[in-house]
């Protein structure tokens, strides 16, 4: 692990920004020392919480060779204009894997969704490496379930002989 900025841009960027009077390098050393002091302060006062580090280590289990990832292609939180006064408007999400689309609508009460092309599917709602709930899509590809738990969630679908997992997302 290198202890310096490793892409070479650091030196170049600084050189261009040397003081106009030509005393290049003045203060560079002090800057580096102060940055290092900040780094130590951050490690003491605001480190990665141990519980989060443990969750990230466990997340290796989420690496799933079998499944295709359905990428988030629409999120009303980002892609839709806010509607004044419509504060409890449902969150609309669309996930796309090649040839399979999953539409999800989230409200405080629960989740409804639709798999396209329409067809039955067995669905697991994942909360980290744990399974939170099992859902079933009917012959039209429609499914309903309880609202996802706090924290990131994903849906893992078995449909027409393939496995698709939606991109991890905070509800």
């Amino acid at each position: 692990m290198s202890g310096t900025h490793d892409d070479g841009v650091h030196g170049d960027g600084s050189a261009q920004e040397g003081p106009a009077d030509g005393r290049f390098g003045e203060g560079e050393l002090e800057d580096g020392l102060l940055e290092e002091e900040l780094r130590q302060a951050a490690a003491i006062l605001d480190p990665v919480p141990a519980a989060l580090r443990a969750i990230a280590v466990e997340a290796h289990a989420l690496h799933d060779l079998q499944a295709r990832v359905a990428e988030l292609t629409f999120d009303s939180l980002v892609d839709a204009l806010p509607v004044r006064g419509a504060e409890d408007a449902p969150r609309m999400l669309t996930f796309d894997a090649d040839g399979v689309t999953v539409d999800v609508e989230l409200t405080a009460d629960g989740l409804i969704g639709q798999v396209m092309p329409p067809g039955p599917a067995r669905i697991e709602m994942l909360s980290g490496p744990r399974r939170f709930a099992r859902l079933t899509a009917d012959d039209m590809g429609r499914f309903t379930g309880q609202a996802p738990p706090a924290g990131p969630f994903a849906l893992r679908l078995r449909t027409g002989g393939e496995v698709v997992v939606t991109e991890w997302l905070r509800a």
Binding site: I55, A56, A59, H63, P152, E167, W168
Partner: peptide
């Protein structure tokens, strides 16, 4: 957010 980033990375 920290968890989401790592879950996606694993994915």
């Amino acid at each position: 957010v920290y968890q989401t980033a790592w879950f996606r990375f694993a994915q």
